[in-house]
Lab assay of single mutants.
Amino acid sequence: MKATFQVPSITCNHCVDKIEKFVGEIEGVSFIDVSVEKKSVVVEFDAPATQDLIKEALLDAGQEVV
Rank of each mutant, 00 (worst) to 15 (best):
M1H: 13
M1D: 07
M1L: 10
M1E: 07
K2Q: 09
A3T: 08
A3S: 08
A3F: 09
A3R: 04
F5M: 02
Q6T: 10
Q6G: 08
Q6K: 11
V7H: 03
P8V: 10
S9W: 15
S9L: 06
S9C: 10
S9V: 04
T11H: 15
T11Q: 09
C12I: 07
C12Y: 09
C12T: 10
C12E: 09
N13C: 14
N13K: 14
H14I: 15
C15D: 15
V16N: 03
V16C: 07
V16A: 08
D17S: 12
D17C: 08
D17I: 14
K18N: 06
K18R: 10
I19W: 03
E20K: 15
K21I: 07
V23H: 03
V23Y: 03
G24P: 00
G24E: 04
G24R: 14
E25P: 06
E25S: 14
I26A: 03
I26F: 02
I26W: 02
I26Q: 02
E27T: 13
E27S: 09
E27C: 06
G28L: 01
G28Q: 00
G28I: 00
V29I: 07
S30L: 12
S30M: 12
F31V: 07
F31P: 01
I32W: 00
I32S: 01
D33S: 12
D33H: 14
D33G: 10
V34I: 09
V34N: 02
V34C: 09
S35G: 03
S35R: 05
E37C: 07
E37L: 11
K38I: 05
K39E: 05
K39F: 06
K39V: 04
K39L: 07
K39I: 05
K39A: 07
K39R: 11
S40M: 15
V41L: 05
V41R: 00
V41C: 04
V41M: 02
V42G: 04
V43N: 01
V43L: 00
E44Q: 08
E44C: 15
E44Y: 15
D46T: 14
D46H: 14
D46N: 13
A47S: 07
P48H: 03
P48R: 01
A49Q: 02
A49F: 02
A49N: 02
A49L: 01
T50K: 00
T50A: 01
T50W: 02
Q51H: 14
D52V: 09
L53I: 10
I54K: 02
K55W: 14
K55V: 15
K55P: 03
K55Y: 14
E56S: 12
E56I: 13
A57I: 04
A57C: 04
A57E: 00
L58N: 00
L59G: 06
L59P: 01
D60Q: 15
D60C: 11
D60L: 15
D60G: 09
D60Y: 12
A61S: 08
A61W: 07
A61R: 00
A61C: 14
A61I: 06
G62T: 09
G62I: 14
G62N: 06
V65Y: 06
V65I: 09
V66W: 08
V66Q: 10
